[in-house]
Design a protein around this nucleic acid. Structure first.
Lengths: 408, 408
DNA sequence: ATTACTTATTAAAATATTTTAATTATTATT
DNA sequence: AATAATAATTAAAATATTTTAATAAGTAAT
């Protein structure tokens, strides 16, 4: 049986001319994927290849069914050049974004188009085999209902919170009950190659590839939710660290308090700057007898959730706004530290709590100004996430795409 | 007048075959500089070039006077291959390491050999034009006494503490009293191309290129001195951030104290974890009536310096050891945070205070274990600097070399 | 519609590189 | 010293790529 184009593309044994041609093909696909569609002249100039050679290779790629001639394109005068780019329907990728109470699943084509999106599918994330089994079933169901043949789906990207080693496929915070890496287990149940990724990192990649990032290369993405995660982009590349555990920002020892964190330590940033901390503060305020629309709607024994506080703030509830400002101040102190260390061009606020918009952005901004060196923080823009709750799912799809195209 | 080889090497206007040949030459030089000397067969395999072509290009480079045939080398059996490498005396680089009370200057050849080292040349760093003038004179004197022609010196790397933008050549913490960038000003007085660098970053590069780093790619270097600096290596590359201000680790807001830092803010790490903090603590202990060899040798009104405490600790003075342990614990809490964020393979302790060896390393290690996630810190080795006080000067030389060879 | 102009595409020639084969150099062994 | 073994070097042939030139295609203006 002949190899598929993508297997051929990653053929390690090629040497000499064959190797150079493969490399050139990768560069062309990389240009299409990362930069834009292009004319023969563009590509020839950019990749330092003569026009006749480029023409030949492009024709090859069209033969391979991976590149498309988009036809004539505007130019100042004279004969108009043809534009070439990836053939969208030549390959597909699935992204899965796992949350505590639901999952999001989406299908993307080769040109980043989201072909199908299924959001907020009910699912309870628990650290046991049944929960894992259910997850696989949900993914299989999604695949079965797709209007495309399964073998066109080249890979599945799965976001999961906690420590994930994407290179080995092990997850340490969830579903870690087997010798085999989690990615292999899911792979065997679904029948498609699986790539795991930390949730905040995937979101960061989503924002970077098709969100708020416009050319910035050194970018920090904060996933402010029940916990607080960090995705780091350095020189346009996701940063992993030795084993992929980078970005454990929620557990830096920034406070001198006695609040015990999930991680077992005290004084973590998360204890004073997260959705979890927000819920704790609200509860305390209620006990102290503060007034708020938050306390009126809830029944006996019903717990107030982070989502309720976000909704209340967006409805101008003073207590909610005050508490979010307090949380924001603490997060801002954490970000100030990141700015001193990274001198980033851009910091993106994402995750559920970023949905409160300026209510959280402004106190964060103030704290940054207070706690970081001004020469450094003058360099740094602070923007709200553009993709919002879609960041994870988009990032998951695009990360698989990136891996399978062996883009750098 | 013909261009020199190195000017030719960075010729941007080359296209087609000329461009590819230049690129190949750069790759070969890069291999020699970053990896090792090599035989024709090695290079051909590594760079995916045929043996006849490689032979021709190498001969070119020998003609250019930049590569040398080192002669036969051992091999299992049969004819022994020739080893090729850089011609050491084909180019030289100067490194200058500026400290508060002295400067170090060194000359390195193309093969990283330190040809001449002049350490602890008296110099008082003050933020005025006279001090800058003196600096340039000292450099000129050093150059004049060298046994090699000036035009063989391709560049000067200068380490200076504080915020430095290496791309523009501006220094913001020292000598910032002109429209023109500092690098250009020195250049015009010395007559050789100048590259500025932040001191901790240069030290980190020194350790990385010829110090304690053995293949690790994600490495943090701490310069623990009067202040506390951080050099960041990511994927084997120095990390700069947007304007080169990355690594302002000394000024992260980690403490909730009332001690005012030089930077104008309160609660900076430096206020509790630096040579400066150490000196403050010693003074306080003295006022409290503690006993120590530290207090015996000093005359009336003479201030105790960080260096005295280091010396005392290395002579087993209990108070000095205790205070260094306290400082170490605070630094360790800071490093714990870096480990959670970076998941590095290696953290290097450098700068004056690292000269106390295990006296500072062990409390740092304990604090790291206490304050960072164990899954993450298990990945991280903690080693003492190998180059010690030479790190800066070696880094300075090697950084210019890297830039002028346009190594990545 | 014709013309002038611009630019892409194709074709042919020139150059460059790889591939293959032959030769030469070196070393260990007999 | 001769021989066999090994590997570098060189040479020649086969490919591949670039370069240059010629042709075709498309556009705008007359």
């Amino acid at each position: 049986m002949g190899k598929t184009f993508f297997e051929e593309l990653n053929n390690e044994s090629a040497t000499g001319v064959a190797y150079k041609n493969l490399n050139l093909k990768k560069s062309i696909l990389g240009y299409f994927a990362n930069v834009s569609d292009a004319t023969i002249a563009d590509l020839a100039k950019e990749l330092n290849i003569s026009v006749p050679k480029m023409t030949a290779v492009l024709n090859d790629l069209i033969q391979d069914g991976i590149v498309q001639d988009y036809g004539k394109v505007e130019s100042k005068s004279g004969r108009k050049p043809n534009l070439f780019g990836l053939l969208p329907e030549s390959a597909f990728f699935i992204g899965v974004d796992i949350n505590q109470r639901y999952i999001n699943v989406a299908l993307s084509d080769l040109q980043k188009n989201l072909v199908k999106v299924a959001e907020k599918i009910s699912y309870k994330l628990e650290n046991n085999k049944e929960s894992l089994e259910t997850l696989c079933q949900l993914i299989n169901t999604f695949i079965k209902e797709l209007p495309i043949p399964k073998d066109k789906i080249l890979g599945i990207g799965i976001n999961i919170s906690g420590r994930v080693n994407y290179a080995t496929g092990y997850s340490y915070s969830f579903f870690n009950f087997s010798e085999e890496p989690l990615s292999k287990i899911i792979e065997s149940k679904v029948g498609i190659k699986v790539f795991l990724e930390n949730d905040s990192r995937a979101m960061a990649f989503g924002e970077f590839s098709s969100g708020i990032v416009k050319g910035e290369k050194d970018v920090l993405f904060l996933n402010i939710d029940y916990g607080i995660g960090l995705g780091i982009l350095i020189n346009g590349q996701l940063y992993y660290g030795k084993s992929g555990y980078s970005g454990e920002f929620g557990h830096i020892p920034l406070f001198d308090n006695e609040i015990l964190c999930h991680c077992g330590k005290k004084g973590c940033l998360e204890t004073e700057a997260s959705g979890w901390a927000l819920a704790r503060m609200v509860k305390q305020k209620m006990q102290e007898g503060s007034s708020s629309i938050l306390f009126e709607e809830k029944g006996e024994g019903e717990e107030i959730q982070m989502e309720d506080v976000i909704k209340a703030a967006n409805n101008d509830d003073v207590l909610a706004i005050e508490l979010i400002a307090e949380i924001g101040g603490n997060i801002g102190r954490g970000i100030a530290l990141l700015i001193n260390i990274f001198n980033p061009e851009l910091v993106i606020l994402g995750g559920s709590l970023a949905q409160t918009g300026e209510y959280i952005r402004l106190p964060i901004k103030s704290a940054i100004n207070k706690y970081s060196l001004s020469l450094v923080n003058n360099d740094t823009q602070l923007r709200l996430s553009q993709l919002g709750k879609h960041a994870g799912i988009i990032g998951a799809c695009l990360l698989v795409r990136k891996r399978l195209l062996s883009l750098h």
